[in-house]
């Protein structure tokens, strides 16, 4: 009995502090939006009739992301930009909504969606089974690979050489999940809060390799001397948008918008804008 009360109190305290952090620390940007008043009104009526409706009553779609993952999402000046942000803006536009971007820790994105603080998450997230237990995913909008960054003089030539090595990852990213498989082969996984900290640790010789998504990997390699991306990727995967489990209405709306963006070539244009063709 005592323990239950304790747990309740702690849950309340923690929930309170989480909310406080979320609202004060979150960077919120509002995307310009060409929706007409009529459209918004129309949406509003829909929202009120449906229980698991998409977005807020005032026509705002809240996107949760972790803006430390270039080129998918990152801070540029005072704004959060990137592939995911632009795709989300395009989707919001199709749905006649205003987009708000909340920048939070990567591993808080899904709780944020589950609790309804955010409508969806777009943060270079890969579909996997564990995540599917807690959220639903849209159709994939792009593919990405988990690659291995090493020093130029490293003896690691491919994924097979990672056994027994010190591997740096960003906590909670797909790279973390895949690299963790190597723990059984005697590797040590060091989970940094930020991708560039893992790269920095490798530059300082603290770890042997970094496993991370290919796009940020390219940025890190271009910014630092003496490191390279191995040709053979660790995995190739697909990114999708996460919504609250059971919110099929929003999921369908997003999938519909994504399909339109794909067909019109708009999606590819956004990706090309950030990722120069090799």
């Amino acid at each position: 009995m005592k323990k239950q009360v304790l747990a309740l109190v702690m849950a309340a305290v923690m929930a309170g502090s989480l909310t406080a952090c979320g609202s004060s620390a979150a960077d919120t940007t509002t995307a310009a939006q060409a929706a007409t008043t009529a459209q918004a009104e129309e949406k509003k009526e829909e929202t009120e009739t449906e229980t698991e409706a998409a977005g807020d009553e005032d026509g705002v779609l809240v996107m949760a992301t972790n803006a430390e993952f270039p080129p998918y999402e990152y801070h540029d000046g005072g704004e959060i930009v990137g592939i995911d942000v632009e795709i989300a803006e395009a989707i919001a536009e199709k749905l006649g909504k205003t987009l708000e971007v909340e920048d939070i820790a990567f591993d808080s994105i899904i709780p944020e969606i589950q609790s309804g603080k955010a409508d969806f998450g777009a943060a270079g997230m890969t579909v996997d089974e564990d995540r599917l237990k807690n959220v639903d995913f849209s159709d994939p909008y792009t593919t990405a690979s988990q690659v291995i960054i090493v020093k130029e003089d490293s003896d690691i030539a491919g994924p097979d050489d990672l056994s027994g090595k010190y591997i740096g990852v960003q906590l909670g990213t797909t790279g973390d999940i895949y690299a963790t498989d190597y723990e059984e082969e005697g590797s040590t996984i060091e989970r940094y809060n930020k991708g560039f900290e893992a790269v920095q640790a490798m530059l300082q010789g603290k770890i042997d390799a970094v496993v991370i998504d290919i796009e940020p990997a390219k940025v890190f390699v271009s910014q630092n001397e003496g490191i390279k991306i191995l040709d053979e990727a660790l995995t190739v995967e697909e990114y999708a948008i996460a919504v609250k489990k059971g919110n099929t209405e929003l999921l369908e709306q997003i999938n519909g918008a994504l399909a339109e963006l794909k067909d019109s070539g708009e999606l590819q244009a956004i990706i090309d804008k950030y990722i120069s063709a090799e």
Binding site: I110, N134, L171, G172
Partner: peptide
Amino acid sequence: KGADIIRSRTYNAYMPLLAAGA
């Protein structure tokens, strides 16, 4: 961090945090 790692795997905020807090 142990709790964070679990959270990043399961996307369940409450269990690992409550356990760590306790």
